[in-house]
């Protein structure tokens, strides 16, 4: 199993005491599979994604990625995992404003020591970014920026792709195109995809779907 989450709990400090956001979440995902994580605002979707991505630590439970328990890792270990094994696509793109489109796409692959110029060219071509490579992120539209963000994630050939509302800022048509590309490339690379979304239509295009309600999988 590529991803396994067991009894994951997470609470946050809030006015009036601690609030439980995740209450014993269990989840699993195989290589080459895609899973939609849906739920209302505040149900804990993004928190779970951050925990799986090693961006935050849980209060209790275990999360295994390729057999390694990331909750038991220190900061450096999680950073290593994010460099090589996990790729994250954010709703806000999170591109590096000081780098060109080409440098942004190559960035994570170079960081992980997996840079493959041919594969990057394929991605640039596939996402229709050939004429944009010398531009900076601020010179691109929202849809273009999200395509750069996805290309960057896929350039390092991660074993697991985590996507947090990747088309949330895009219009319907652009969102559909971006999703087509994401799904085809994830499938082609044999990676696993866990995607947080509000959209029932998008969720329907993935292999399976789980719904999170008040911190628990329904």
């Amino acid at each position: 199993m590529l991803l396994t989450a067991r009894e994951v709990h997470k609470t946050f400090e809030a006015v009036g005491g601690r609030t439980a956001v995740l209450r014993g979440v269990d989840l699993s995902l195989d290589s080459g599979q895609s899973l939609a994580l849906t739920g209302e605002s505040g149900s804990g979707k993004s928190t779970l994604l951050h925990l799986i991505g090693g961006l935050d630590s849980a209060d209790q439970g275990q999360i295994f990625i390729d057999g390694a328990d990331i909750l038991a890792m220190d900061d450096a270990g999680r950073a290593w995992l994010r460099r090589g094994t996990v790729g994250i696509v954010f709703q806000q793109f999170n591109l590096i404003p000081s780098l060109t489109v080409a440098s942004n796409i190559e960035f994570q692959a170079r960081l992980a020591g997996k840079y493959d110029a041919d594969w990057v060219d394929v991605l640039i071509d596939h996402f229709g970014l050939s004429s944009q490579v010398a531009k900076y992120p601020e010179q691109l539209s929202g849809g273009q920026q999200q395509r750069v963000a996805i290309a960057r994630t896929l350039a390092s050939r991660p074993r697991l792709v985590l996507a947090d509302e990747p088309t949330g800022n895009l219009d319907e048509e652009t969102a559909s195109n971006v999703m087509d590309m994401l799904l085809s490339l994830v499938t082609e690379a044999g990676a696993g995809l866990l995607m947080v979304t509000h959209s029932a239509a998008l969720a329907a295009r993935l292999d399976s779907r789980v719904h999170l309600r008040v911190g628990q999988i329904e």
């Binding site: 961006l55 900061d75 995992l81 460099r83 999170n94 590096i96």
Partner: peptide, 12 residues
């Protein structure tokens, strides 16, 4: 923002 992104991409 850049620092956050670099960290999410795996830079300790």
């Amino acid at each position: 923002g850049t620092v956050q992104t670099l960290r999410t991409l795996g830079v300790p």
